[in-house]
């Protein structure tokens, strides 16, 4: 029992992981290493400076009259030369260290902005929106373009090129375990490279203040073995399966006959709205409302009934759903695997 509790606790913390210290990709390792070098070196210098400041305090006081501060009592030439020597040496060392840090920063920045090998890279287009992420798996073959939202699946060990832009204001794509931040700018495409070296779920977060719900603009990156990823991608390419049970068919009718269709698309139905997240495989995602809530029926009911209560300012419209239609709608949404 205790082990089960501990296990689930460990699993939940692993699920909630969002830390640059928990590096899972080559670029994240480089950033972490750079951070470590800065921390150790500057920490060391800090300790030395503090030590040098403390030593004179600890030394026995020789009395002010022995070395008065008046102008006429010039220090001896030897003392002058010693002083000039130590100040000069300290300046040289400081300048060298600063230049060294600048050089390793620039080198690290250059390295993380590109992959080690560009061949075989997967291209994912990410568009920032207030306040969610549109995700599109680019492909030369139009029938292989998959569209999803707020969740990336990537194959382990394969470099992934992120082509980012924004539909409204500046956002910033940041998955700390995989890479540094990259701004998503309206009418401009920025590129970024991520790669995961081990399977896992990594949380990402908008890192540029983008309005009321900036804090609730998260996404999940799911890194999985290549076969599993291919299976996922192939599944995402499929249209939604029409429901067979009457109650779910009713739910689909509710969806298609309401305002939902103005913003959301479900491939395989007449719903073709392009301004909200694509819902074709909605039920297969981990979260709803861009990482705000776990994806389950109860949360979805609350989200549909009163989105402003969960995410004040969200552009998700409050669409009135008749009480007898709520359950069928929720059951239909659950079929969108």
């Amino acid at each position: 029992m205790k082990r089960a509790v501990l296990g689930s606790l460990a699993a939940s913390t692993a699920f909630a992981q969002q830390s640059a210290l928990d590096a899972a990709g080559p670029n994240a390792y480089r950033i972490k290493l750079l951070g470590a070098v800065f921390l150790v070196l500057l920490g060391l210098i800090f300790l030395i400076v503090i030590a040098l400041a403390l030593i004179p305090l600890a030394r026995r006081h020789r009395g002010i009259e022995q070395e008065p501060l008046e102008q006429r009592n010039q220090p001896s030439q030897l003392t002058e030369r010693k002083l000039a020597g130590s100040v000069g040496a300290a300046t040289v060392i400081t300048v060298l260290i600063l230049f060294g840090l600048v050089i390793i920063s620039v080198v690290a920045g250059k390295t993380v902005s590109g992959p080690s090998n560009r061949a075989n890279a997967l291209v994912i287009e990410i568009t920032g929106n207030q306040w969610w992420w549109a995700v599109r798996y680019a492909n030369d073959d139009a029938s292989r373009i998959a569209v999803t939202a707020n969740e990336l699946h990537i194959p382990v060990g394969r470099p992934v090129m992120i082509r980012g832009t924004s539909n409204d204001v500046i956002h910033s794509f940041w998955v700390p375990s995989l890479q540094g931040k990259r701004d998503l700018i309206p009418s401009h495409v920025t590129t970024d490279w991520i790669q995961a070296d081990r399977p896992g779920r990594f949380r990402g977060q908008c890192a540029e203040f983008c309005g009321l719900q900036h804090a609730h603009m998260a996404l999940w990156v799911v890194a999985e073995p290549a076969e599993q990823f291919e299976a996922w991608l192939t599944h995402q390419l499929q249209a939604a399966i029409p429901p067979s049970e009457p109650v779910k068919q009713r739910g689909q009718q509710v969806f298609l006959n309401s305002g939902c269709v103005l913003c959301h698309a479900i491939q395989g139905t007449t719903a073709a709205g392009q301004v909200g997240p694509d819902l074709t495989h909605f039920a297969s995602r981990l979260t709803i409302a861009a990482g705000t809530l776990a994806n389950n029926k109860g949360n979805l009911a609350g989200w549909i009934a009163d989105p402003q209560n969960i995410k004040a300012g969200t552009h998700m419209a409050t669409i009135p759903v008749k009480s007898e239609d709520v359950q069928p709608l929720l059951e239909y949404m659950e079929t969108l695997q």
Partner: peptide, 8 residues
Amino acid sequence: GGRIPEYQ
């Protein structure tokens, strides 16, 4: 009608 809620 029936699509856009009144407040919008």
